[in-house]
């Protein structure tokens, strides 16, 4: 394994970014964005997760296969959540009145 050693500086920088992200999440939660509060919260969480995956978990330096594997996990998570939600979002669309 041509193992990649990430310098300590990168780790500290990511750590700082994660702390800022946490502060942003909390801050954004107190502003009324109506339906977009959850979008913003998930977006920030996704960025934080990406930073952890990319740098702490070394995926930035890993093979395409590993990247594909990570992507697969999130795609499948999306499949189960989105298809199930399609049911709940379209249930009330049409009621038959004789």
């Amino acid at each position: 394994m041509s193992e990649h050693i990430v310098s300590k500086k990168v780790y500290y920088a990511i750590f700082a970014a994660l702390l800022i992200g946490t502060a942003l999440t909390i801050g954004a939660a107190f502003i009324n964005l109506h339906n977009f509060n959850i979008v913003v919260a998930l977006l920030i969480a996704a960025v934080k997760a990406t930073l952890v995956i990319y740098f702490f978990m070394h995926v930035k330096y890993a093979s395409r296969l590993t990247k594909l594997c990570v992507a697969l996990g999130f795609i499948w998570l999306f499949i189960i959540v989105s298809i199930t939600m399609t049911d709940y979002l379209t249930r009330g669309w049409f009621t038959y009145v004789p």
């Binding site: 909390i26 939660a29 920030i44 969480a45 997760a49 952890v52 995956i53």
Partner: peptide, 22 residues
């Protein structure tokens, strides 16, 4: 360990911050 951290990164806004604004 990082994976467990990532789960929490999502759990925090989903559980604690559902509707905090005034």
């Amino acid at each position: 360990w990082h994976f467990v951290d990532i789960v929490w990164i999502f759990l925090f806004p989903l559980l604690y911050l559902v509707d905090r604004h005034l």
